[in-house]
Amino acid sequence: MRREQLEHAIRAATTIVQQSEIIVIGSQAILGSWDEDELPAEAVMSVEVDMCPLVDDDAESLATEIDAVAGEMSTFHETHGFYIQGVGRRTARLPLGWETRLVTVTGENTAGAVGLCLDPHDLCAAKLIAYRDKDRIFVAALLDASLVDSALIAERLTWVPDETQRAATARAWLTPWL
Rank of each mutant, 00 (worst) to 15 (best):
H80F: 13
V17Q: 02
I84F: 06
V139T: 09
T14R: 13
A140V: 04
R136H: 04
G32Q: 04
P161K: 06
V69D: 12
T79A: 10
L96R: 10
A140S: 06
W159L: 14
Q28C: 13
E21A: 13
S146H: 09
E38L: 07
A140F: 02
R166M: 02
T175W: 15
E36M: 03
T91K: 13
L54N: 00
P176W: 08
L31N: 11
A41R: 00
T75R: 15
I153P: 08
A13H: 12
C52G: 11
G71E: 02
L152P: 05
T15F: 14
A12T: 15
D133Q: 09
E108K: 15
W34L: 08
L178M: 14
F82K: 04
Q85M: 02
D58K: 09
A63F: 05
I153E: 09
E163D: 14
Q18H: 14
A12Q: 15
F82S: 11
H8Q: 14
S146M: 10
A170G: 08
G88S: 05
I129T: 06
A168N: 12
L39M: 05
A145Y: 12
L152T: 01
W98F: 10
P53W: 13
L116Y: 05
A170F: 14
Q18P: 01
E108P: 08
A170V: 12
R171H: 07
D144R: 12
Q5T: 12
G88L: 03
S33V: 02
M73F: 12
T158A: 14
H8G: 08
E65L: 15
A113Y: 11
L54M: 06
A43W: 07
P176R: 08
H121C: 02
A172S: 08
Y83G: 00
R166G: 03
V49N: 10
